[in-house]
Simulated assay, not measured.
Amino acid sequence: MNEYETTDLSSLSGQTSNLLGSWADSVQGHGDANELRAHHSTCLGCGPDNPHGHHLQVRRDGQDVVAEHVFDERHVGAPGIAHGGAVATVIDDLFGFLLYGMGSLGVTRSLQMDYRAPVLLGRNYILRARLVERDGRKMHTAATVAHETNFVATARAVFVAVDLGHFTEALSSADRDRSSR
């Protein structure tokens, strides 16, 4: 039995408990599959049921994770250009798939984006992320965003491994706040 099976979700509302439980199960459920499942159905980065989401489809490539993505009008910043926050969102989500590959839950401690050229709407970009180093609970990661052979953005991030209790505590507090209104 692992920590995901033994964490008490009873303090959460039914919907929150179900979502968190299925999310935690999916962390453990990737095995050696090359095509990786969405974090959960409504995830902003990869959830297939989120109408405002990016719908990333991620696969393993050796130790890296890779996705192809086309930014569209939902992601516009300046006319014809993807908003920097939209680009950061997909990179942050891609990094989350690295954690899945390690069977670890984690939270973003820092994310640094370097934009080398405009990320244009309607173009196919290759997103690639890798683990650079693991230092205890800290996971240092790096990513690139490329169109054909041109790197348009790079990123570095630090994630901190946490257990499921980190999320249940935050969500229990949110559920209490909602019910007291």
Rank of each mutant, 00 (worst) to 15 (best):
R137N: 15
H40L: 11
H30P: 03
G53H: 09
T141L: 15
P118I: 02
D25I: 00
N18G: 15
Q63I: 04
R134T: 07
D93C: 13
G106I: 00
A129G: 03
V27Q: 10
N124Y: 11
W23K: 03
S17N: 12
S17V: 09
L121R: 04
C43M: 08
T89I: 03
I81E: 05
I126P: 12
A67L: 00
Q63P: 12
N124T: 15
F97D: 07
A129T: 01
A38M: 09
D32P: 04
L56W: 00
G45T: 00
G85I: 06
A146I: 02
G103D: 03
F71K: 09
V107P: 00
M113Q: 05
L111Y: 09
G47E: 04
P51I: 00
D72Q: 08
T89W: 05
M113R: 08
H39D: 00
L20I: 10
H40R: 11
F71I: 06
G101K: 11
G106Q: 02
R60L: 01
R109T: 10
G96T: 00
Q57M: 06
S22D: 12
P51Y: 01
N34K: 14
V90E: 03
E133P: 06
R123A: 10
G136L: 03
R74V: 04
W23T: 01
D32N: 03
E73Q: 15
N124M: 14
A86W: 08
D72Y: 05
R74H: 14
P51A: 03
A38F: 08
Y100D: 07
Q112Y: 15
N50W: 07
D135R: 14
V119R: 05
L44G: 09
D49G: 08
G96A: 02
L131H: 12
D49Y: 07
A88S: 14
T108D: 11
H39R: 02
R116F: 14
F95H: 11
V107D: 01
G106M: 01
P79F: 04
A78T: 14
R37C: 06
V107K: 03
G85A: 09
